[in-house]
């Protein structure tokens, strides 16, 4: 397969001077064409920054210190503003967490969708509203965002993101703000539409089992780095990084019946510069001496890798 997205040793900081916060501390990620990749991490792990960096959407306060993001082999940082806009328009689609906020409150749904469809007319608008399984498309088209439920608004946002049949859809916690009943429906929709259009998915989430259920690959983020990545089933069943293992035990959907939920002890780190040693060391149950001093090396190959001084062996349940 061809590599669609390559994030290389990306370092991103917010603010400057004493107030600097390092959101990404050398993140590595590869997404192949048509792949479905779940990026999993707690809030503050850097996954949203990673998602924004792909489209060159980092806020003005953010600074790319090192590394590179390449979409279709072209460095996003090296693009001219015009090229970057063309990339966003033709190659990328974004779906955000807060669906109603992502729509202009003063414009009817039909017009907003019509703008994305670039003058294909009302029939195309209604057709897309139907494709995202909205009942009564005519009524939705005439509505303003605040008149829709969160689930309906997210379907509209998905239609707007998928209308250009992008190569890569970046979904940043697309169901976190939705009622639990509609979450699965919305995810079904995203994955069905993407599969139909050959669109690769980069799904940012905090729910490891939910991601592993739908994605072909999973990348686990901690402290601004991807600490483990690999085929979803392998990462979920046989995590090699102690953080992945802890994450798995902390989520209700992963625990078996009668099994105890074990929260990950301690707080995620707030980095002000490059982490000395492993960022997870203070919370790690199996911490070794080098963990607090040396940055862990990359162990494994591109298909299945882990950043750890003492990774669990491949295939062993942790």
């Amino acid at each position: 397969m061809t590599v669609l997205l390559h994030v290389e040793a990306l370092v991103v900081e917010y603010g400057s001077g004493d107030g600097t916060v390092r959101a990404l501390d050398g993140a590595e990620l590869v997404v192949e064409e048509g792949a479905t990749v779940g990026v999993v991490g707690e809030s503050g792990s850097g996954k949203s920054t990673l998602g924004a960096a792909v489209g060159g959407l980092l806020p003005a306060a953010a600074r790319t210190v090192a590394g590179d993001v390449r979409v279709g082999g072209v460095s996003v940082a090296a693009m001219t503003p015009l090229q970057r806009r063309a990339m966003r328009r033709d190659q990328l689609g974004y779906v955000f967490q807060e669906p109603i906020g992502a729509l202009d409150p003063t414009m009817r749904i039909g017009r907003q969708l019509g703008h994305v469809l670039r003058g294909q007319g009302r029939a195309a608008v209604l057709d897309w509203l139907e494709r995202v399984a909205l009942r009564d498309p005519a009524r939705v088209a005439a509505a303003y965002p605040h008149q829709l439920s969160g689930g309906m608004a997210q379907r509209v946002a998905i239609a707007m993101a998928m209308a250009s049949e992008p190569a890569l859809l970046i979904a940043d916690e697309p169901t976190a703000a939705l009622d639990s009943e509609v979450r699965e429906e919305v995810l079904d929709l995203v994955f069905t539409l993407a599969a139909g259009a050959g669109t690769a998915i980069l799904w940012l989430s905090h729910d490891l089992p939910a991601v592993a259920k739908r994605c072909s690959r999973v990348a686990v983020m901690y402290g601004g780095r991807v600490v483990e990545s690999g085929p979803a089933a392998e990462v979920l069943v046989a995590p090699r990084h102690p953080y992945t293992a802890a994450l798995r035990r902390s989520v209700p959907s992963a625990a078996g019946r009668g099994e105890r939920l074990v929260p990950v002890p301690g707080q995620p780190p707030v980095l002000t510069g490059a982490a000395v040693g492993c960022a997870f060391a203070p919370r790690c149950p199996a911490v070794l001496e080098p963990c607090t001093v040396d940055r862990p090396p990359l162990v494994g190959d591109l298909d299945r890798d882990v950043l750890c001084h003492l990774p669990a062996p491949v295939g062993a349940a942790r």
């Binding site: 489209g55 806009r85 990339m87 990328l92 974004y94 955000f96 992502a102």
Partner: peptide, 8 residues
């Protein structure tokens, strides 16, 4: 932000 992300 969403409009920027769409390439407008």
């Amino acid at each position: 932000t969403a409009a920027v992300a769409r390439g407008d």
